Computed example of a mutant assay.
Amino acid sequence: MSIDSEDLRNCPARITLDAAQLAFFDGLPAEAPSVQTELGCELELGHEGSHAALGQQVEATMWWIQWTLSASEINPYTWCPAKSTPHVEDRNDRDCTLFDGHPGQHVDGHLARRSDAA
């Protein structure tokens, strides 16, 4: 089994959501697929600060779980504005898929490739 070099660009940290966190996501007013019980950090390898994974999106608000070795919390964010087009309903492959103010480089939706920070 080999390790793909693309995988090494993402932080390998993972979190297993507890019952209270899953209940919070299940209680959001959105028709979305069930939240996975285990999530991986979506930030770049070597990022500063807490780890982060998207839990669920409700309209323009994205609910991200953020964690460290000792604590976790769920926080509301909006999309990162990098490369986004104003007044467009749908996100496209060139938009950053992370939250506004995230640490590190931007991640676009096209195969989660990294793009230069704006």
Rank of each mutant, 00 (worst) to 15 (best):
L45V: 10
L28K: 06
T61M: 05
L39K: 04
T37Q: 14
M62A: 09
E42D: 10
G55A: 13
L54F: 06
Q56C: 13
T61H: 01
G46W: 12
A52I: 07
V35E: 10
E42R: 11
G55V: 04
L45M: 14
G46Q: 11
G40I: 00
L28S: 09
P29R: 03
S34Y: 11
L45R: 15
G27M: 07
P29C: 04
G46Y: 12
Q57T: 14
V58K: 02
P33K: 14
D26M: 12
C41P: 00
T61Q: 05
G46N: 10
L54V: 03
A52G: 08
T61F: 03
E42P: 01
G49D: 09
L43F: 13
L43E: 01
D26H: 15
D26W: 13
F25H: 02
G40A: 11
T37L: 09
L54S: 05
V35F: 09
L43C: 09
E42Q: 15
E44P: 03
T61N: 09
A32Y: 06
V58G: 01
E42K: 07
L43Y: 10
Q36Y: 08
D26R: 15
L39N: 04
A52Q: 03
V58Q: 09
M62R: 15
V35T: 15
V58I: 06
V58H: 06
E38Q: 13
T37A: 13
A30M: 05
G49P: 01
L54A: 07
E59S: 10
C41V: 11
A52H: 00
A53E: 07
G49S: 09
H51A: 13
G49E: 06
C41Q: 06
G49C: 08
G55C: 10
E59N: 12
A60E: 02
S34G: 10
G27K: 08
L39P: 02
A60T: 06
E48Y: 12
A30D: 01
S34N: 12
G46H: 12
L39W: 04
A60S: 02
P29N: 01
L45P: 00
T61A: 02
A53D: 07
V35K: 07
E31H: 12
E44H: 11
E31I: 09
A60M: 02
P33A: 14
E38V: 14
H47W: 12
H51T: 11
A30H: 05
E48N: 11
E38I: 10
A52P: 00
G49Q: 08
L28H: 09
E31M: 12
Q57W: 01
